[in-house]
Simulated assay, not measured.
Amino acid sequence: MTLTNPPENKIVITDTSCFILLKKINALDILHLSFTHVLTTPEIAEEYGYPLPVWIIIQPAN
């Protein structure tokens, strides 16, 4: 999958349902193609239960 316009410093903060639904349709990479930075929390990453790609930033919420 490719995008006609590359991301321009876009950030998204995801939750578990986003990861689950995109995994079911084998489209997790759409986040990487659509956003410059993809963030989630350690709690969401643990709840998801599968390894996340290296381009997903896992950090605690402040």
Rank of each mutant, 00 (worst) to 15 (best):
K23R: 11
F19M: 08
N5Y: 12
D29K: 03
M1A: 11
T4H: 07
D29L: 02
P6G: 08
T41K: 11
A27R: 10
N9W: 06
I56G: 10
E43T: 15
T4G: 10
V38F: 03
N5P: 08
I11A: 12
L39M: 10
V38T: 07
N9A: 14
I58V: 15
T36M: 07
T36A: 12
L33S: 05
L28T: 04
T16S: 04
T41A: 06
K23V: 00
I56Q: 09
P60E: 07
L21D: 06
Y50I: 04
K23N: 05
I11N: 08
Q59E: 14
D29W: 02
E46Q: 12
S34C: 05
V38A: 01
E47V: 07
V38S: 00
P53N: 10
Y50L: 10
Y48E: 03
V54F: 12
T36I: 05
N9C: 07
P6A: 12
L28V: 10
P51E: 15
I25N: 06
A27G: 14
T41N: 09
I44P: 00
P51I: 12
V54N: 15
F35C: 02
M1W: 05
K10D: 05
G49W: 01
L39Q: 08
A45L: 09
V12S: 06
V54R: 12
I13V: 14
H37M: 06
P60F: 07
P7G: 03
P51D: 15
V54G: 15
M1V: 06
W55L: 07
L52I: 14
V12A: 11
I11V: 13
S17Q: 04
M1H: 09
P60K: 13
P7E: 01
L3Y: 10
E43G: 10
I13F: 15
T16W: 00
D15S: 07
N9K: 08
P6F: 07
P6H: 13
L33V: 01
T40V: 09
H32I: 01
P60D: 08
S34N: 04
P60I: 02
D15M: 04
L52V: 08
T14Y: 02
Q59F: 05
L39A: 05
I44E: 05
K23Y: 00
V12K: 03
I56Y: 05
L21I: 11
Q59C: 14
H32G: 07
T40R: 02
K23M: 03
S17N: 14
T36C: 11
S34M: 00
L39W: 11
E8K: 14
A45E: 05
Y48D: 01
P53Q: 06
W55S: 08
L3P: 00
I13E: 05
L52T: 11
E46W: 03
G49H: 03
I20C: 06
H32E: 09
E8C: 14
E47K: 13
L31C: 09
T40L: 06
T16P: 00
V12M: 09
I11G: 01
P60Q: 07
P42C: 04
D29E: 11
A45W: 05
Y50H: 15
Q59G: 05
